[in-house]
Amino acid sequence: MRENQISTGKIIDGKEVFAVELTNTRGSKVKIYNYGAIISEFVITNAKGEKQDVILGFDDFDGYINEDYLANYPYLGVVVGRYSNRIKDGKFTIDGKEYQMTKNLHGGDTGFDKKVWDILPTIDPSLTLQYISKSGEENFPGTLTVQLTFKLSDEDELILDYKATTDEATAINLTHHTYFNLNKDGGSVGQHHHRMPASNYLEQDTDYVVTGKLIPVEGTIHDFLGGKLIGQNWDPAEGYDQSYILDKKYGEFGMASETTEHTSGLKLEVFTTEPVAHFYTSKYLDVANAKGGKDYHPFDAFCVETQHYPNSINIPEFPATVLLPGQTYHQTTVFKVSK
């Protein structure tokens, strides 16, 4: 694995934006920006011997800060924090004090996805990004120091390793919002075959906020235990936007999902230490002039967002998402592409 750092020529909030490329012995390549920790490319060789990029995004950095794109912002390829998914009414209480967030998705108006992260020196060819979120940012308590390390193995595994510490009790639930399509020509992911080792999913209210109730997948459209085409049972107007509880011990590293596409012969496996995978088939995706001049439409991608239980900050019986001083938040997620 090698790394290559290239300036985009852009300065945001006084910091320079770089693209960092990681490559391996197979000739695969991953491109990551230190703005938003965006995974912009994941290029591998498919079963036909063709180079194929399995990530949705833009050809250059300007696309990610374009006003039209931001007006209908889908979080393409970004890290999400301090708190992913949705918090009920944007409120939570820690140590008897209530905190009111912007009632918004994925960490507020200006989350970790719109920050320029510092590039830290590393010994091996990998990329470690750091962002220090000051106390009060987006109304979250505590100064939170986050480090996210990316590695590309010679087995085409993209490894994301997160660590965070705080000086005051705070809420944290990080994830990565990478959009995948394993068909070289793009289009709907309805014909991708998807499997998830998850016997239960989390009930959501009309605002997609998790209520605390677990529902068995058996007999529902959410049953991916044996694997099926994504579009086999979905509501074609809604797709999937659902959190699944993975069938593994809490904190254990294990499989979150396995997705295959027959024309490319590619398979994406996702492994994680996190207890939940949020499966999203991009209902709200609407992006013009993306990679290669393509437009992206609803259901043209899927996301497997590994995380803790959404809204668990407000549901005591769920695993805690409060980080205390002296503790280290740590999670690892791996995206492995094979054929």
Rank of each mutant, 00 (worst) to 15 (best):
I159V: 14
I159E: 08
T149Q: 13
V146A: 08
S188P: 06
D124K: 15
N173H: 00
E155Y: 10
H177R: 02
G142N: 01
T175Q: 03
G186Y: 12
H193S: 07
E203M: 07
A171L: 04
D185P: 07
W117C: 00
N200M: 11
Y208R: 14
T122M: 01
F140G: 01
N139L: 00
L152D: 06
P197E: 02
D185S: 14
D156E: 07
L158S: 00
S153K: 08
T170D: 03
L160M: 03
A169W: 07
H194N: 15
Y208G: 05
T170H: 05
H177V: 01
L160R: 00
W117H: 01
T122W: 05
I123A: 15
T145V: 13
F140D: 00
T143S: 10
K184Y: 12
K151Q: 13
T128A: 03
L152T: 05
G190C: 13
E137S: 09
T166G: 04
L174D: 05
Q147P: 05
L127F: 10
L152R: 03
L158Y: 03
L144G: 00
T165W: 02
V209T: 13
F150K: 04
E168V: 09
D205Y: 10
Y179L: 03
L160T: 00
D205Q: 07
T170Y: 04
G186P: 13
